[in-house]
């Protein structure tokens, strides 16, 4: 399912294996989180697909570099799991352990990526402040600069918003505390009257983890009924949401059992 505008085909390397089909970065993330068993996956198949993707689609340098790096990361993760560990007594005392050097490098790279993500958010906050002399920093928008954010993009962005403790927590959602219908209305009210709102800002209205999860489910409903479109600029981590002007409000109302006065207006303002 793709929300709002759809991403042009071929701009991103996608993995298709037995239990998974989607972007490579999410795949590596799931392997690292041990949600997917890398031992059952044919890394050779992924490497072959990557080589074909690079030849057939000629992606940009950034996309190609990232795909190669992530695939290398995946190969490393699998090799590390397959190789037997060296008993401590056999290890050379005077030489650095090659695997620990590699682990250190991966940690450093992950840290750099996390710092880059932090700076991307900082950049977004800064760009929300405008002043007249700023115009020299603008560049003309390319027609295909804005791309639709799909469900996987929304999921990655949502995972990025959770704290470490929240991401680990098993959460049960009670029907009574935060009904989805009411949350949908709440979300529409947040987006109402604004050209667009960042996903992070929308989710900042959730009071706790349970409400954050219900927010996510509500967002999926809104996207499914084309009441909200999700989009992002190419090369940007940040997803923005906006109400769609000619949304099928009536269908969503019927499905959720929400009355006309509840905040779901006939036509969402642009």
């Amino acid at each position: 399912m793709v929300a709002g505008l759809s991403a042009p085909e071929g701009s991103e390397f996608r993995v298709q294996v037995q239990d998974y089909a989607g972007p490579l970065d999410l795949f590596v993330y799931l392997v690292k989180q041990e949600e997917l068993d890398v031992l059952t996956v044919s890394v050779l198949q992924i490497v072959k697909s990557l080589a074909k993707f690079l030849v057939d689609r000629s992606p940009g340098l950034d996309s190609a570099g990232e795909a190669i790096l992530l695939t290398a990361d995946l190969v490393y993760l699998k090799s590390r799991l397959l190789l037997p560990g060296t008993p401590p007594e056999e290890a050379e005392d005077d030489l650095p352990d090659p695997s620990s050097v590699l682990v250190q490098r991966i940690l450093q790279y992950e840290e750099a990526r996390a710092m880059a993500q932090g700076l991307a958010e900082q950049q977004e906050r800064r760009q929300a402040m405008w002043f007249s002399g700023d115009s020299t920093k603008y560049t003309e928008t390319e027609e295909n600069d804005i791309v639709g954010a799909g469900v996987v993009d929304l999921a990655i962005s949502f995972m990025g918003m959770l704290t470490r403790d929240e991401a680990r927590q098993v959460q049960y959602i009670s029907r009574e505390r935060y009904p989805i219908a009411e949350t949908v209305v709440k979300m529409v009210k947040i987006l109402n009257g604004k050209p667009s709102v960042s996903m992070r800002e929308v989710f900042s209205h959730a009071r706790d983890l349970e409400e954050k999860l219900v927010f996510f489910l509500a967002l999926l409903e809104l996207v499914k009924f084309s009441l909200v479109s999700a989009f992002q600029r190419r090369n940007s981590f940040n997803i923005r949401l906006r109400l769609v002007a000619d949304a099928d409000v009536e269908r969503l109302r019927l499905k959720l059992g929400v009355s006309g006065e509840s905040g779901l207006r006939e036509r969402a303002p642009v």
Partner: peptide, 19 residues
């Protein structure tokens, strides 16, 4: 400013500048 956007750095640039 519908036809303009601010300069947003690519992921690679963000990584380098953060390092």
């Amino acid at each position: 400013f519908t036809k303009r956007r601010k300069l947003s750095l690519s992921k690679a640039s963000l990584e380098v500048v953060s390092i």
